[in-house]
Simulated assay, not measured.
Amino acid sequence: MKRFALLLISVLFTGMLLAATVDTVSIYSNSMKKEIKTVVVKPARYGYDTQRYPVVYLLHGHGGGYANWITRVPHIQELADRFNMIIVCPDGAKSSWYYDSPIDPNFQYETFVAKEVPAYIDSNYKTIEDRTGRAITGLSMGGHGGMFIGFRHADFFSACGSMSGALNTTVITRGYNVEERLGDTATNRKYWEDWSVMKVIETYPKDSLAIIVDCGTEDMIVAMSRAAHEKMLKLKIPHDYIERPGKHDWKYWNTAVDYQMLFFRKHFDTVKKKN
């Protein structure tokens, strides 16, 4: 009996050790001259072997912050374990739209998320330091960020996605701070036109890019995902597209992230086999 009890304790202790761990780190942004917080979720086996891990950069929505995903969808820790990957949730400010603002030097979040955060992660964690081991996605504003950065930095990321993405920022002219990031719609018309995902996807990269877009059928902005889907079909851009019942809320994203992480894990595995 004593031996069984010791064995049980040993098993439970090992199980506790082999669980995802969550770091909250401060990353200095040279482009914005400030420290910005980021959540890093490491899979269970991290630290117990010598392997390097793929990374999914997971972006929050408008009004949110770096801690949104880990507090609202804590099972992303289980997803990190299940799919054996690192999940990184950087702060994109409440309304950066993941742009490098041409009018406000305090909002250079394309550079921060696409370059400064990955540079820190690659330097401090056991990552696959190659585009084949990097993906980026997010919800709502973060869905725009995932597609915007994924396409514009396809030499650095090999996969991107969107959950309930606000993919057409040209029509978001009031109420969501896009005008504060891009400036007047007349004076800075070029930014408004060229920096919407609907325009960005016209420049499909020479390196293949794995893409997943999903949205709830009752979502108030589902038309944006449908339009992006139709445009990519027209341009013959390979992608996965999903619609299922749901609204623009955390109930939907709680499940949507499962599909997205599975998609990225399969992508990483496919790329690994090819190499």
Rank of each mutant, 00 (worst) to 15 (best):
K274P: 00
W250N: 12
M220H: 11
D258F: 03
K273V: 08
F268V: 01
E218V: 05
P238T: 08
K266S: 10
S225G: 08
Y241C: 01
G216R: 12
V200G: 02
N275R: 11
P245E: 14
A210Y: 14
W250V: 10
M220D: 08
F263V: 04
H267R: 02
I221H: 12
Y241D: 01
R226M: 09
K274D: 10
V222G: 01
H239A: 04
D258V: 06
G246L: 10
L235D: 05
V271G: 02
I201M: 06
M224T: 03
A227E: 15
D258H: 14
A210P: 03
V222A: 13
K251T: 15
H248C: 12
D258S: 02
T270P: 01
G216C: 09
K273F: 04
I237S: 05
A223W: 09
V200C: 10
Y259D: 08
F263A: 09
A256N: 10
M220I: 09
K234E: 14
H267G: 02
R226K: 15
P238Q: 13
R226T: 02
D214I: 01
V197E: 05
N254I: 00
K272I: 03
D207E: 15
M232K: 02
H248V: 08
Y204G: 05
A256D: 11
V200H: 10
T217P: 09
K199P: 01
D219A: 04
I242Y: 07
S225M: 03
D214G: 07
Y241S: 02
I237Y: 01
V213H: 03
P245D: 13
K231V: 04
E202T: 01
H267S: 03
H229W: 07
W250G: 07
T270H: 11
C215F: 07
Y252M: 03
K236Q: 15
V271P: 01
P238A: 08
M232F: 05
L235I: 02
P205H: 10
W253T: 04
M198T: 09
R226A: 05
Y252Q: 05
T255A: 10
D219L: 11
Y259R: 04
A223V: 15
T270A: 14
E230S: 13
K272M: 11
K266W: 09
D214K: 06
C215K: 11
I242T: 04
A256C: 05
P245Q: 11
K273H: 02
R226V: 03
K274S: 13
I237T: 13
A256I: 09
V213D: 14
T270L: 05
M261S: 01
E202K: 14
G216E: 09
K274I: 14
A210I: 00
S225V: 10
V257E: 07
D258N: 12
E243M: 07
I211G: 04
S208K: 11
L209E: 04
S225T: 06
V271R: 13
L209W: 07
H239L: 07
I211D: 06
T203Y: 14
M224E: 15
D219E: 10
I201V: 14
G216F: 10
F263C: 02
F263N: 08
Y204L: 07
M198I: 12
V200L: 10
I221K: 06
Q260G: 00
V257K: 05
L233V: 08
Y241T: 06
K273Q: 15
A223Y: 14
K247Y: 12
E243P: 04
L233A: 07
I211N: 06
L233E: 15
